[in-house]
Design a binder for these strands. Structure first.
Length: 627
DNA sequence: CGTCTTTGACCTGCGC
DNA sequence: GCGCAGGTCAAAGACG
């Protein structure tokens, strides 16, 4: 997370003023909206000055603002621009776009008019300078926040290194202390003791657990040891050797939260690091500081071949229900399990998302008389993306389409948005939202969810078998706006609006948002053409392509674009993970938000806001939340 | 004939 | 250990 990247993002995300530098036709993106008059002025100057070397100098400085944009003094640049302008011939300086274009041979302007125009130009440039100064302030604030984030990262990294060192010491101690017979003891004994740290070195972490076999779930043992004889995809997962890294963090309420980072997929060395929050089962709760220490130091060094792989036995020792733990790692290694669900009101059998699908199954799900259809992407063989299509039981005009997985092929035009949605959502959800249903109860009393929409169903659901983000566009399908506020949501306390400058989405940050936060937003273009950083409509996502005459088509486009915008933002993804980690860390110290009763939702919002992230929260007035 | 859909069987996970 | 539910497979049929 480099500063350059962040600041560049903030500038580019502005989507606002694009200042055409005089004379050389260069275009520099500015993170604010240039007033129409000024833009026209500069444009007109640009069109006529062919040898304005002085202005070119200024232009290059503007470019350096965009590229280096760190130490450059914007006020000084503006002043120089003014000075350069003063040195230009008067017939080149005093032309603005709101006046008839004066070309060569035109009569010279009168001194009075010239003075007035020069004054106007100076005023406009002063406004520009003011805005630039404000930008500088925002950049400074962003820098400060980045410093904080970096410090947090360093602290976490230091914690990791410490844990690794402790683990190595513990491993060495175990080698010298544990008798040979104890090492060969049955797993049941190990589990009962609950102290032995070592796992069977011969057993891959993703192999079927002995516990699973004992419980009769391995009905078809296979030579591959995966327990999935019919699915190549699953066999592939089983072939991967994973070395998890678990950091235990204490929960304030009644359980523990384990933030687990699966350090490395040792098969392909791909960075599959994921954060996972997990609440220990009560019977596995720590009873002693020593046990806590064992948890905290349970770290596997992915790079060391002397370290045994963590097997299911160790999962139990660590308080993870073995099956669940294995499952969690499988989820980590397969983004298929993160889902993006879209609710639309349509009569069509499926949602046209631009991809080709082949139906491979249909099932009657319990509680819904409408069958659920299973589709597989057929754009390319072996593409893991699947989708489920089912009509809502309560309202059969609502079509629920759930996407899962990442496309492994170039996408047809028109399918890019949805594909990026599922892909990014998978990463986002794997990073940030998976936690125990108990733990995230503060995020939404009954549904254990974040809210992103107006429908009282979970929008990021942790109670579902898989983390799922849901976009609900059924409340007003003909509207040209998709609201992310939840003014009518009674059960869900929070709403997030996220940066969505890409994909044609404008986000209107709430007026309460600070300038740094708003800097992440796409700056809505105000009708006046003047600078406006804080549009009045809070928490509203508006698409550029709104067309009331094509509500259904637009509906789909909006869903696709908005979902993609929300989930594709790497800032949000990383920030969410950081925020959750920060929250959990804070809760470890019992100092989160100054209260143990603070909800995770509140804490999350606080942490996100503290990081200046493009997320805002609107707490519903008077709503009672079971945090 | 190739592709797609249908549908019953099978597998796995989970709760009791 | 058993039963249920969700998900997947693959043979059979439909369709162009």
């Amino acid at each position: 997370m480099g500063l350059n990247t962040e600041e560049s993002r903030s500038i580019e995300a502005g989507n606002g003023g694009r200042l055409r530098s005089p004379g050389i036709g260069l275009s520099v993106a500015l993170p604010f909206e240039i007033s129409g008059d000024m833009a026209n002025t500069l444009d007109s100057e640009s069109s006529r000055q062919t040898h304005a070397s002085d202005s070119a100098t200024v232009a290059s400085e503007f470019i350096s603002l965009s590229t280096n944009h760190r130490e450059t003094s914007i006020p000084r640049m503006t002043q120089q621009f003014l000075e350069n302008e003063n040195r230009l011939p008067i017939n080149l300086r005093n032309k603005t776009n709101d006046r008839p274009t004066v070309v060569d041979g035109s009569p010279p302007l009168t001194p009075k008019r010239s003075s007035q125009m020069e004054s106007d130009l100076h005023n406009q440039l002063k406004r520009t300078r003011n805005e630039m100064e404000r930008m500088m302030d925002e950049n400074q604030q962003m820098r400060k926040m980045l410093t904080l984030m970096t410090a947090e990262y360093n602290a976490l990294h230091q914690h990791l290194l410490t844990a690794v060192a402790q683990q190595q010491q513990q491993q060495e101690a175990m080698k010298s202390m544990v008798p040979q017979s104890a090492a060969a003891a049955p797993n049941e004994e190990v589990i009962k003791n609950g102290h032995t740290q070592r796992a069977s070195p011969e057993r891959s972490f993703t192999e079927p657990s002995s516990n699973s076999a004992a419980s009769g779930r391995s009905r078809s043992p296979t030579p591959t040891g995966t327990g999935h004889s019919r699915s190549p995809r699953r066999a592939h997962h089983g072939a991967k050797e994973l070395r998890p890294l678990s950091l235990k963090l204490e929960d304030n309420s009644n359980g523990k939260i384990i933030v687990q980072a699966v350090s490395m997929d040792t098969t392909d060395r791909s960075p599959v690091s994921r954060f996972r929050a997990y609440k220990e089962e009560p019977q596995f709760q720590s009873t002693s500081p020593e046990r806590d220490h064992e948890f905290a130091t349970e770290v596997q060094d992915s790079g060391s071949h002397e370290e045994p792989s963590v097997g299911p036995e160790q999962s139990e020792q660590n308080g993870w229900p073995p099956n669940k733990r294995v499952k969690s790692v499988l989820q980590d290694t397969s983004v298929r399990n993160a889902r993006v669900s879209v609710r639309t009101r349509t009569d069509a059998p499926t949602m046209n998302d631009g991809c080709q699908w082949r139906k491979y199954g249909q099932k009657l799900a319990k509680g819904n008389p409408c069958p659920r259809a299973y589709y597989r992407c057929t754009v390319a063989p072996g593409c893991p993306v699947r989708k489920q299509v089912q009509r809502c039981a309560e309202d059969r005009s609502i079509l629920i389409t759930t996407y899962e997985g990442n496309h492994s092929h170039p996408l047809p035009q028109g399918a890019v948005s949805m594909a990026s949605t599922t892909s990014a959502a998978a990463g986002m959800l794997m990073l940030g939202s998976t936690s125990s249903s108990d733990r995230v109860e503060g995020l939404g009393s009954a549904e254990n969810s974040f809210s992103l929409g107006t429908h009282p169903m979970p929008m990021i659901s942790a109670s579902a078998p898989f983390p799922t983000i849901t976009l609900d566009l059924t409340t007003n399908p003909a509207a040209s706006q998709m609201h992310l506020d939840a003014a009518n949501v009674s059960r869900l306390p929070y709403n997030f609006s996220m940066a969505a400058a890409a994909n044609g989405i404008q986000l209107h940050p709430p007026s309460i948002m600070n300038p740094v936060q708003s800097a992440y937003y796409g700056v809505a273009k105000p009708p006046t053409g003047a600078f406006q950083m804080y549009p009045p409509n809070p928490l509203t996502v508006q698409s550029h392509v709104g067309n009331a005459a094509r509500p259904q088509q637009y509906l789909h486009e909006s869903v696709t674009a908005a979902t993609a915008a929300i989930t594709a933002d790497p800032n949000f993804t990383a920030a969410l993970a950081t925020a959750i980690t920060s929250i959990l860390s804070s809760q470890t110290n019992g100092s989160l938000m100054g209260s143990n009763n603070t909800s995770l939702g509140e804490a999350l919002m606080g942490a996100l806001a503290g990081h200046g992230l493009p997320i805002t929260a609107a707490k519903k007035d008077g709503a009672s939340h079971s945090m």
